[in-house]
Design a binder for these strands. Structure first.
Length: 269
DNA sequence: ATGGCTGGTAGAACCAGA
């Protein structure tokens, strides 16, 4: 429902790993959950080929797309009005990894797809890891100047806390959970006082995952997950959050993404 | 058990994901 007509606003985020290939489960999620806004990452489609019709038919008539051929790509689909604001290039190489909008209910919404960073957690030998750290630094520069209340969602490709991974010791040298990435995320968090909404609702030490590899024989049995997807809010926005959900069932749907959707509901006064 | 699996694009003994 529109901000002005409703007490709440629900915002979901999902790394969909090709929105065209998984259009059926996106539709199923929207019909089941009916979020007001859906932020997608890894849409893997140029804007002219984005499957806009399905979203429009379900009421998501406000669409802000930022795609590119083959890889990456982000999009925001909304039942409430929004105004496209910024497309940051925090990787400084033209890849489609961010889009930001202004919402009528009084805060910004930024949808980001932070680079994975390759295999080797050494910026000297792995340029992708160096790019990931540079991305986080540029994001931190933006964050330190940010004055508007903001909700930042997306695939951060970092699992910062010990209970964000299946095995802290086993993953200390695995990209996504290395101390250098965690330190970069700490600097980012402190640059704006970001509130980690997932952990506001499900505190440590409870394990919390949003991604399970396709490579496991049985993702649920082995349960080697990581919390890579996040919603971080300005303190004023976090104060409005009334509910936070993970949709683990989606990992079992037909042709699943390796990520699950997450959703926060906000009180709108 | 550091293996294996996935989609897009080209038409790969590919790339990227993480």
């Amino acid at each position: 429902m529109a901000c002005a007509m409703s007490q709440t606003l629900s915002i979901a985020s999902w790394n969909i790993n090709s929105v065209r290939f998984r259009i059926d489960i996106v539709e199923r999620f929207l019909r089941d959950v009916q979020p007001d806004i859906l932020c997608l990452q890894e849409t893997k489609v140029v804007d002219r080929d984005f499957p806009s019709a399905m979203f429009r038919q379900l009421g998501y008539t406000h669409q802000v797309l930022h795609g590119q051929p083959m890889h990456h790509g982000v999009a925001i689909l909304s039942r409430v009005p929004m105004r496209e604001d910024k497309r940051f290039d925090w990787q400084d190489n033209g890849e489609a990894r961010h889009v930001g909008v202004e919402l009528e209910c009084g805060f910004r919404l930024d949808n980001v797809y932070i680079p994975a960073g390759g295999e080797e957690p050494d910026p000297e030998v792995n340029p992708k890891f160096a790019q990931k750290l540079a991305f986080l630094d540029r994001m931190t520069q933006w964050s330190s100047q940010l004055t508007e209340p903001t909700l930042l969602v997306g695939d951060f490709n970092v699992a910062p806390l010990e209970s964000d991974v299946w095995g802290h010791k086993q993953l200390l040298n695995v990209v996504s959970h290395t101390p250098v990435e965690v330190a970069a995320m700490d600097r980012f968090q402190q640059s704006h006082g970001w509130v980690d909404l997932g952990r506001q609702f499900i505190p440590e030490p409870e394990q919390m995952f949003t991604w399970w590899s396709y490579r496991a024989r049985d993702w649920k049995a082995s349960n080697r997950g990581r919390r890579l997807d996040h919603m971080w809010a300005s303190p004023a926005v976090a104060a409005r959050a009334v509910d936070h959900k993970l949709f683990e069932d989606c990992r079992n749907w037909g042709k699943p993404s390796d990520h699950i959707p997450i959703l926060t509901t906000f009180r709108i006064d």
